[in-house]
Amino acid sequence: MKNPWQLTPRNNVSFLKFGANVSLRAFFGQSGPWFETGDMDGDKNSIFHDVDGSVTNYNDSYVARIDNYLVRHPKCVNVTEWNGVTCSGKYAQVYVQARNPQNLTMSIVRDEYPSNPMTLRGINQKAPYQQYQPVVMLEKGYTIHWNTQSPQTTHLYLINFDKGDWLRIGLCYPPDTSFQVMSQIVKSQTFPVEEYQPVSSIEELQKRRTEGKYFFDNSTGLLFLFLQAKHNRDGPQL
């Protein structure tokens, strides 16, 4: 452990065999001399994909740290001796860059578990931006808050999304903030920039999820938008 950066849910394991004397097939650490506080971003987002159930006895399952409510759902199974939880579902990551200011702590919370946010310190404290990469469950809603002033510029990148995969993200800003929301495919060549347009309600945003729209709820200070992969990923699909 003591990992400042996130693992990917595309970390697959299969065909594992354990000896009769192996008491722990997985372990996500605990506070102490080996793991310190277990409070780094990568520790909190530890996850792997048990393809054939050779670790968990559940085919096509994902194993994460027990206190990670970003990836949970009601049918997950706690494995307390591992300090872990076993879940089914579809998972990916969102890579977040925050600029001006660039030394923020980010808090992200799933809509279904508002009392269980994950706080991420980010890495590259001396860079012109701070970066975070939480593991998320697809087709869910998340809200991002900051420990002080919201960044003037935030970049959101879809990591390990397949075509059609989506998330709804809410970003916290002061009331009456003005926005310029843009989308662009980042590859070796330049692609045109799509500028998002505002809508008047969260219900309209939901209906027009694929159209490049956003909604700012001035009463709560939350900017909502959908992140959706519109193209297939390059390379092998693991």
Rank of each mutant, 00 (worst) to 15 (best):
N147H: 07
Q131D: 10
I144M: 13
W82C: 13
N124T: 10
V71N: 04
Q149S: 15
A127H: 06
D67M: 05
Q133C: 03
Q97Y: 05
L120P: 08
L158K: 04
H145Y: 14
V109A: 07
Q152G: 10
P74R: 13
T143D: 05
V136D: 01
V136A: 02
S107D: 03
E139N: 14
D111C: 09
A64Y: 06
Q97F: 02
V136G: 05
I169M: 14
D67Y: 03
I169Y: 04
N147V: 02
L167Q: 10
L138Q: 12
Y113W: 09
Q133N: 10
D165V: 08
P128E: 11
T86Y: 09
N83C: 04
R110M: 08
E139M: 11
P128D: 09
Y69T: 00
V85E: 11
I144K: 00
I159C: 06
N68T: 03
Y95T: 03
G89A: 08
V79Y: 06
Q125E: 15
T80P: 12
F161D: 14
Y132V: 05
W82P: 03
N68L: 04
P114H: 07
I159F: 01
N124C: 04
Q149H: 09
D67I: 01
T80E: 14
E139R: 10
W146R: 15
P101D: 08
E81C: 08
R65G: 07
P114L: 01
L158V: 05
Y95K: 07
P151F: 02
V71W: 01
Q130M: 13
V71D: 06
L120W: 05
I144R: 02
G89T: 00
G84C: 05
P74Y: 10
Y173W: 06
L171F: 09
P151N: 07
P174I: 00
R65Y: 00
Q149C: 11
V71S: 05
V79T: 13
Y95W: 09
N124P: 01
Q133A: 13
V96K: 00
Y157A: 02
I144P: 02
Y132R: 01
T80L: 10
M106E: 10
L138N: 10
I169E: 02
I159A: 11
Y69Q: 01
V85M: 14
H73E: 15
N100S: 11
Y129P: 00
I169P: 00
N116Y: 13
N124V: 06
D67E: 09
A64M: 13
P134W: 04
V77E: 12
I108S: 08
